[in-house]
């Protein structure tokens, strides 16, 4: 299996690569469109600030490539948020794959949400073998609003989409690569989609 992690200069991608290594898979880091197009599975990571991440995507032309991909694609954290219509962070237009918007948590809660929270209302093969209310590790100040494409929900101030799916595109707000053995199961599930 050819597994490619999109390397556009954002975030801690080593952790994702290592997580797949632990499952016995070699993941390639690449921003080469040919390499990404011919992958069996694509991971779209992202940690950091939305507008600068989007700028980096545009510079490498990946903003137009990603929405055309046909194989399973998994956006993680900011990766997932950038796949939405718009994010309030830096007033940034997203890739428009998921029909929802990304907003900032209010001052009524501590921001960022940092730590382990539960995912529920699980709705996809991505969560095969994962029980309702399983704990996942999250670090984020912005959240995707609930929509028809929500495949997992989490409560923090409000009930929001902690995972999304549209056709071959998947996104998780949480970090499966940092969520212990249950997170590893989700990555394994993604590889068998």
């Amino acid at each position: 299996m050819k597994l490619v992690i999109i390397d556009y200069g954002a975030g801690n991608i080593k952790s994702i690569q290592f997580a797949f290594n632990r499952l016995g898979y070699e993941a390639i880091l690449s921003k080469n469109p040919e390499e990404i197009k011919t992958a069996d599975k694509v991971i779209f990571p992202g940690v950091g600030e939305a507008s600068s991440a989007m700028k980096m995507l545009k510079e490498s032309g990946l903003d137009t490539l990603i929405p055309t991909l046909k194989q399973p694609v998994l956006g993680i954290c900011l990766g997932m948020q950038l796949m939405c219509l718009h994010t309030e962070e830096g007033d940034t237009k997203g890739l428009g794959i998921f029909q929802t918007k990304v907003k900032r948590f209010s001052q009524n809660v501590k921001v960022p949400q940092m730590g382990w929270n539960v995912i529920k209302e699980l709705k996809s093969d991505l969560f095969k073998g994962i029980k309702e209310n399983e704990y996942m590790y999250l670090v984020h100040s912005y959240y995707a609003e609930h929509c028809d494409e929500t495949i997992a929900a989490t409560d923090y101030e409000i009930n929001y989409a902690s995972a999304l799916q549209h056709e071959n595109f998947y996104g998780t707000q949480f970090h499966p690569e940092k969520s212990g053995n249950e997170g590893a199961k989700i990555l394994q599930n993604f590889l068998t989609l």
């Binding site: 080593k14 952790s15 290592f18 997580a19 290594n21 632990r22 590790y137 670090v139 970090h175 690569e177 940092k178 969520s179 212990g180 053995n181 997170g183 590893a184």
Partner: peptide, 11 residues
């Protein structure tokens, strides 16, 4: 750090 990241699946 590299070795920890390789083998540990929590932050």
């Amino acid at each position: 750090v590299l070795h920890v990241a390789e083998q540990v699946n929590i932050p």
